[in-house]
């Protein structure tokens, strides 16, 4: 199993997501993350999907996605040729005595504190998925209570079409 980031440009209509997820599921692909948002032209949506699956069937999956009437195009993105970002927010249950420790980490990762109480902190961070993973690992040792990740967003570099 390998991880792939696939970007799909679709008609902005009900039911499209069902068809997409069914195509992945039938070929045994597991969806790790999925982001749907309107495209510049609001008749269309952009979907970024991170999936785990067999590299040999990737081409097949892309063809099967492209075959769907509501899919305008679907393509796999090489991380070297694209900008990838993810947003995460973390809730840590920490009191004033451990705050400075968290703030240090926030500083190193160029994250932000967006909410604070005497019992808790919410940290916002944007970056590559691996950066988010690293923060999660550190926060796990210091009272991480909740984490919400946006899922990966991808855009092709330069003038290439995403």
């Amino acid at each position: 199993m390998e991880e792939f980031t696939i970007s799909i440009y679709v008609n902005n209509k009900p039911g499209v997501l069902m068809r997409l997820s069914q195509t992945f599921a039938r070929r045994g692909y597991n969806i790790d993350s999925l982001v749907v948002s309107p495209a510049v032209d609001h008749q269309f949506s952009r979907i970024t999907v991170v999936v785990q699956g067999d590299p040999e069937t990737l081409d097949q999956i892309l063809r099967q996605l492209n075959k769907l009437v509501d899919v305008v195009h679907a393509s796999h993105h090489d991380p070297k040729q694209s900008v990838e970002r993810e947003l995460a927010i973390f809730k840590l249950l920490v009191g004033p005595e451990k705050r400075s420790e968290v703030l240090q980490i926030v500083d190193v990762f160029r994250a932000k504190i967006v909410d604070i109480t005497d019992q808790s902190l919410i940290v916002e961070s944007t970056g590559s998925s691996s950066k988010i993973d690293a923060m999660e690992k550190l926060f796990n040792t210091m009272g991480l209570k909740e984490m919400v990740r946006s899922g990966k967003l991808v855009m092709a570099r330069g003038t290439n079409q995403t």
């Binding site: 009900p14 039911g15 069902m18 068809r19 069914q22 039938r26 009437v69």
Partner: peptide, 14 residues
């Protein structure tokens, strides 16, 4: 029926 038949149609509309 739209949902039921997704895997067995070329396309469908509600």
């Amino acid at each position: 029926i739209f949902g039921v038949t997704i895997p067995v149609v070329k396309h469908s509309y509600l």
